[in-house]
Amino acid sequence: MAESVEYFKKHKPYSGLKIVHNNHLTLSSICKLAPLLLSGASLTITVTDSLQASPDVIEILHEHGVNITKINDLKDDFDILLDCGAGLANIVHPRIGAIEQTQSGKVIFEKQNRYPVISVDESYVKKLETLYGTGDGFKRAFNCLVKEDLAGKKFVVFGYGKVGHGIVRELKKMQCSPIIIIEMDNEALNRARLENFQALSINEDLGSIKKHLKEAFCVITATGVPGVVSKYFSRQDISDGYKVNMGTEDEFGENFLAEDVLANKKPLNFILEEPTLVEFLDPIFYAHNAAIDLLLTKKFAAGFHSLPLDFDLNILLRWSKFHKTDVSEIYQFI
Score class of each variant (00 low, 15 high):
55 P>L: 01
56 D>A: 13
56 D>E: 13
58 I>G: 01
58 I>A: 07
59 E>D: 11
61 L>K: 07
62 H>R: 15
62 H>S: 15
63 E>G: 04
66 V>S: 07
66 V>A: 04
68 I>L: 12
68 I>Q: 01
68 I>A: 00
70 K>R: 12
72 N>A: 11
72 N>E: 14
72 N>H: 06
73 D>N: 14
73 D>A: 14
73 D>P: 02
74 L>P: 08
75 K>H: 08
77 D>Y: 07
77 D>M: 08
78 F>M: 13
78 F>S: 11
80 I>M: 09
80 I>N: 05
81 L>A: 03
82 L>G: 05
82 L>P: 05
82 L>R: 06
83 D>C: 03
85 G>I: 08
86 A>G: 12
86 A>I: 05
87 G>H: 02
88 L>F: 09
89 A>H: 02
89 A>N: 07
90 N>H: 13
90 N>V: 04
90 N>Q: 08
92 V>I: 15
94 P>L: 01
95 R>D: 05
95 R>I: 05
97 G>S: 07
97 G>H: 06
98 A>E: 04
99 I>W: 03
100 E>S: 09
100 E>Q: 09
100 E>Y: 06
101 Q>W: 10
101 Q>L: 15
101 Q>Y: 14
102 T>V: 10
102 T>N: 06
102 T>S: 15
103 Q>R: 11
105 G>C: 05
107 V>R: 12
109 F>V: 02
109 F>N: 02
111 K>H: 12
112 Q>M: 14
113 N>K: 15
115 Y>G: 03
117 V>H: 09
118 I>D: 12
120 V>M: 14
121 D>N: 15
121 D>W: 12
122 E>A: 14
123 S>I: 05
124 Y>P: 00
124 Y>H: 09
124 Y>R: 07
125 V>R: 01
125 V>K: 03
126 K>P: 10
126 K>A: 12
127 K>E: 13
127 K>H: 11
128 L>W: 05
129 E>N: 07
130 T>V: 15
130 T>G: 15
130 T>M: 14
131 L>Q: 01
131 L>C: 09
131 L>A: 05
132 Y>W: 13
132 Y>R: 02
133 G>P: 10
134 T>F: 08
136 D>K: 02
138 F>L: 10
138 F>N: 00
142 F>Q: 00
142 F>L: 12
142 F>K: 00
144 C>W: 04
144 C>E: 15
145 L>C: 05
145 L>I: 12
146 V>E: 08
146 V>L: 07
147 K>R: 13
148 E>S: 08
149 D>C: 08
149 D>V: 14
150 L>H: 06
